[in-house]
Amino acid sequence: MNSPIIELDELSRTFVVRSKAGGLRRERRIVHAVDGITASITAGEACGYIGANGAGKSTTIKMLTGILVPSSGRVRTCGFDPVPQRRTLAREIGVVFGQRSQLWWDLPLGESFTILAAIHRIGAAAAQPRIDQLIDGLELAPFLNTPVRQLSLGERMRGEVAAALVHRPRLLILDEPTIGLDMISKERLRQFLIAERAQQGTTLLLTTHDMSDIERLCERVLVVDQGKLAYDGTLDGLSRRVALERVLTVDLAEPSDPITVDGATNIGIELGGARQRLSFSPDQTTAAQVLAEVAGVAEVRDLTIAEPAIEDIVRTLYSRAGGGS
């Protein structure tokens, strides 16, 4: 059995917030960003860590990586105590923050990889095959000589992921890696991460607001709300527990009367009937079944499926469990 690569034991982090309370007096308030989370992630797992904005995800990651000191509780990452052993831990983990860069802004992208290999004390002979592998897997060759500041967001994010993997970390932490990316860039990145995990056995911890990222990349989900752990289990188990409705929007070749489908509800018609929206619950039917029935009575030109927002999932999960406000 694989040993835990992440261990959280009653992990908490509080912050003091001061705000004006009238006149010259300032009010002092304690905010529990992370509130007694206990969980472990086994080496080789792919785990989604999700929740609404302000739920405590980024604070947890900062404690996992040694950037923040816990207020109480215990955390171990790759067997190390993250704060006192931060330098040693850095050799075992790779981290990508969607809003921050580890690349050298004015240098060509390829030079960042060489510099990072040197920082990790990887010799040129050992580093180059790995760098070449990442360049090929993430299709970076066309813009290796382009300064990072001139890259598109999708190109830069692929570069960020490559930079985090140059030293073959045991744990890869991705914080909103697909934010702002188009569908093609997102899928290219997802395909690479699936292949990388299969080849290297890398453990993945992913925070995202895109449920498609979770569905494609993760076998397990941790849901946090207001700093507390609300759910720990499989994505299928979360879907069954929450069972929020999805919405299938179809564009038809010709206008049509309202289409009715078993297990779905027609919730809207636009463009004189050429566009129709059907909601369905995943515990009663599937998008494929709904689409098949629609296609049986009308020609479908295009379609989209709207997943419930993570905020809605967390809200529903807590309301059914009688969670905190």
Rank of each mutant, 00 (worst) to 15 (best):
I131Y: 03
R87T: 12
V224N: 00
A309K: 15
P282K: 14
G263K: 11
R277Q: 08
G268E: 13
I173T: 04
R241T: 09
E155D: 06
T38S: 15
T59S: 15
T65I: 10
E176D: 08
L174M: 10
P142H: 09
L109V: 10
I214Q: 11
Q200D: 00
E215T: 13
R76L: 09
T38P: 15
V223L: 03
A126W: 10
F143A: 06
V223G: 01
G272C: 13
G36K: 12
Q99G: 02
G23S: 09
L193C: 14
L204R: 09
E139F: 02
V314D: 00
T114S: 07
R26F: 15
V250H: 01
V297M: 13
Q133N: 09
P4Q: 05
A164M: 12
M183I: 15
R158E: 04
G227L: 06
L11F: 05
G36V: 14
E160Q: 05
R168A: 02
G296P: 11
I184C: 13
R130D: 02
V224G: 01
Q128H: 04
V34E: 05
F113T: 09
P147F: 07
R130W: 02
Q200H: 01
R158G: 05
G233H: 03
E187H: 13
A43W: 00
I93G: 07
S3T: 10
L109G: 12
E111C: 01
V17T: 12
L89R: 07
E7L: 00
S239D: 02
Q199K: 12
D312C: 07
A117P: 10
A306Y: 04
A124W: 13
I30E: 09
H120Q: 14
T146G: 08
L24K: 09
T146K: 13
V250K: 00
A55M: 12
R320M: 08
F192H: 09
I93A: 08
T146V: 14
G154E: 03
G324V: 11
W105P: 03
V96I: 07
V250Y: 01
R18G: 08
S239Q: 10
V290S: 03
P255K: 01
A288E: 15
T114C: 01
V161S: 08
M183C: 11
V223Y: 01
P169G: 04
Q199H: 10
R76E: 13
T14E: 02
T114A: 10
T114P: 01
A287K: 00
E176L: 07
P169D: 03
E307G: 04
S212N: 15
V75G: 15
D132M: 05
E176F: 07
V17Q: 11
R241W: 00
I310R: 10
D9A: 12
R158M: 06
H209S: 14
